[in-house]
Nucleic acid binder design. Structure first.
Lengths: 161, 161
DNA sequence: ACTAAAATCATACTTTAGTATGACCAAAAA
DNA sequence: TTTTTGGTCATACTAAAGTATGATTTTAGT
């Protein structure tokens, strides 16, 4: 019922307006009989009323033009990019700072691979004594006591791997 | 042509109506002179004409109503996110596969930090013997001979760090 | 309740790692 | 030229690391 009223609101309003106008018309017609020579005024009033009604109707009934406004909405999509965290700028500065020589670095690298002093010696074609000397100096320079510590620290300082 | 007719249907209809109305007016005016008491019809005609004029005026003179429709356009912005290559799924499967116990893993981790057997023993409140037993079993399970190898292999298998 | 695995401790031993010290040589820097 | 630095080798020693073997105690699963 309410929906019906809402949907036909315009029609209802129009009907009501028509009723009021007809009433006014009748009243004016009566007045017209009493006052002569006011025919032009009566016509004028009718004209004004109906023109106003027309304007009102037109304004109410025209469909609005649809203007489409495009609003750009940013959507951030996180794209995972796999990047090596370890940069390959093998810290040569650190090597210099610590005064680690090329040969010592070699020994350090082989140590980190899990080789024993003997294996390193064989690989580098030198005696085990030499490797021991190197490693001792390395530990001094790295300020550590054991090879495992040396490996850990060297990796931490980006000297190896 | 059909599209044009459809679009200007209202205007065409209006023109047609006006033509018919003018004709009717002239005819009714003539009838009004001849036939008295047709005053109401004349008024009605006037009303219709002016209402139509009002509608026409309203349509012509008013600015078109604009209904703004906002359409959101999605713009995809790719944001690069740096991700670690090393995933943190600490290889529990590998641990199980190798049969490495929790305690052994602890020892392995402390080893990798460069601690000696004695230091590990102190840290875990056990004797050095225990640590030696653990490490021996670890080396067996990891199929290595030295702690440095164990550390290297464990890191490679993502068991530690 | 029983069993198996895990964790602990211990002794005895071997191997490797690491220290201290010194010597030799070659290349580069002062 | 002399000195420094890096690399080499050696002896002697100490300190760790690692092995072998065995035993006891927890802990968790059947």
């Amino acid at each position: 019922m309410v929906a019906f009223l809402t949907r036909h609101k315009m029609i209802m309003l129009y009907g009501l307006s028509m009723a009021i106008l007809l009433f006014l018309l009748k009243w004016l017609e009566y007045r017209f009989i009493l006052i002569s020579h006011s025919f032009e005024i009566y016509i004028g009033i009718i004209a004004v009323i109906f023109m106003t009604l027309g304007i009102w109707l037109a304004l109410k009934l025209t469909k609005p033009k649809i203007k489409t406004v495009v609003v750009e909405k940013e959507i951030v999509i996180e794209k995972e990019v796999i990047v090596n965290t370890k940069d390959f700028t093998f810290n040569e500065k650190e090597l210099e700072k610590l005064g680690i020589s090329q040969r010592e670095l070699e020994v350090l690298q082989l140590m980190a691979q899990g080789l024993s002093n003997n294996e390193i010696a064989e690989k580098l074609f030198v005696s085990t004594h030499t490797i021991k000397t190197h490693s001792s100096k390395l530990f001094e320079k790295l300020d550590v006591k054991r090879r495992t510590q040396a490996i850990e620290k060297a990796k931490r300082l980006n000297i190896i791997q």
